[in-house]
């Protein structure tokens, strides 16, 4: 049993070590714009634009559920306009980044790991190297940059839609007025809320794409190895999103409160 635990722990550390190594290598390869530039928009579209529907759908339902939950919780002496406050704070600072990040971890992380894993096991990566391309610059950098740039875009859209869904639910289901909802939403609104959510989602994008690329490039064997690497990428990305969420809360919110 101890051997199993030790092996899992070692493999996890190896994976994160490889991810760090790949991230550092990608950082060096960013200068090779000619290599990754032509692929960037394609990756941005695949990772970001094509992920907008899932992000918006999640935010839509999240906003409605949050408004109803807030109304259910705020009874008695708590004023109803705080429904707006809760929806605004929760959607912008937590739920839109994390839920969208988790959804994209599944979609984007698995996509990247499967794509790069297939290229690895079919030796297309080796072929690129043979042709003189830097596989990191050609495959990894555009994906990481697309993830870092497009995750905040998807999350920003999710914030907007989630707030709108909460407002619509308050009006349609809770008999609140627009002014009531906006009063609550504006009461404690701070530009920091948006910055916090967007920066956090950028870090999620970075983690998801790096872990997807790492697991894809180290895929071994045939289709089974590709599937395994995709699964590993999703699991590690999801865990990393939660870890980063806690990290930002401790580093940024705690520091801000102090």
């Amino acid at each position: 049993m101890f051997e199993t635990i030790g092996r899992v722990f070692r493999e996890a550390l190896e994976a994160f070590g490889q991810a760090g190594s790949l991230a550092a290598e990608a950082g060096r390869s960013v200068r090779d714009l000619k290599t990754w530039g032509p692929n960037f928009s394609q990756q941005a579209r695949a990772l970001g634009v094509n992920s907008l529907p899932i992000g918006i759908l999640i935010a839509l339902f999240t906003g409605v559920v949050l408004a109803l939950l807030a109304s259910y919780s705020f009874t008695g002496a708590v004023p109803r306009y705080l429904v707006g406050t809760l929806v605004q704070k929760t959607v912008m600072m937590e739920l839109a980044p994390v839920l969208t990040g988790l959804a994209l971890a599944g979609r984007v992380g698995a996509n990247i790991a499967a794509e790069l894993g297939t290229m690895t096991v079919t030796e297309q990566v080796d072929a690129l190297e043979t042709l003189g391309y830097d596989p990191v610059a050609y495959l990894v950098v555009p994906r990481i940059l697309a993830g870092v740039l497009m995750f905040p875009i998807v999350v920003g859209a999710a914030m907007f839609v989630g707030l709108g869904a909460g407002w619509a639910a308050s009006l349609g289901l809770l008999d609140m007025s627009t002014s009531e909802f906006l009063k609550g939403a504006r009461l404690f609104f701070d530009g920091f809320d948006v910055r916090y959510g967007l920066v956090k989602s950028a870090s999620f994008g970075f983690a998801v794409t790096v872990l997807g690329c790492t697991n894809g490039l180290r895929a071994k064997g045939g289709a089974q190895g590709v599937g395994s690497s995709a699964t590993q990428a999703v699991v590690q990305s999801a865990v990393m999103i939660l870890v980063l969420d806690a990290f930002w809360a401790v580093v940024w919110l705690l520091g801000r409160a102090a």
């Binding site: 941005a44 875009i153 920003g156």
Partner: peptide, 10 residues
């Protein structure tokens, strides 16, 4: 498409 999406969302 990517540019338009980024601009609209921003």
């Amino acid at each position: 498409i990517v540019g338009a999406t980024i601009i609209v969302v921003m």
